[in-house]
């Protein structure tokens, strides 16, 4: 299952990179979200997808899924959410100020 998941993650990263390289600001934001998904899945996958009980002690199971990567990914999801929300508002403000979402036109002033 790990091999399959890694291949899927590869596809997610490919698509995310492709989206980031486009001109539209919104596609770039979606690309960044996809990067986040890819990274989270990679984290869980590399810790091993061995079958076991959810990390709840009440289950009284022999083996549990590794709780540490889950905690880390949880933190990452929340941070990713904060950043994405901020990014969306920036995209919105950029469009309001410059009246465009085309990154080719948003390339800074000439005297920089």
């Amino acid at each position: 299952m790990e091999i399959l998941m890694i291949l899927v993650i590869g596809v997610i990263f490919t698509v995310a990179t492709y989206l980031i390289l486009t001109k539209s600001l919104l596609r770039v934001v979606i690309g960044l979200i996809m990067y986040g998904h890819g990274a989270h899945l990679l984290f869980i996958t590399l810790a091993g997808l061995k079958q076991g009980a959810p990390p709840l002690l009440g289950e009284e199971a022999v083996a549990y899924a590794d709780p540490l990567p889950q905690a880390v990914v949880l933190t990452a999801i929340v941070i990713g959410f904060g950043v994405t929300a901020f990014l969306l508002v920036i995209a919105y403000r950029t469009y309001k100020v410059h009246q465009t979402d085309d990154l080719d036109q948003l390339r800074g002033s000439a005297d920089e």
């Binding site: 590869g10 990263f13 490919t14 698509v15 990679l42 996958t45 590399l46």
Partner: peptide, 17 residues
């Protein structure tokens, strides 16, 4: 470039695994 990134990440992850 995109396929390159995907490939590198896949290969790295496979090796790491």
């Amino acid at each position: 470039v995109s396929i390159g990134v995907g490939l590198v990440i896949t290969l790295t992850a496979l090796s790491a695994h």
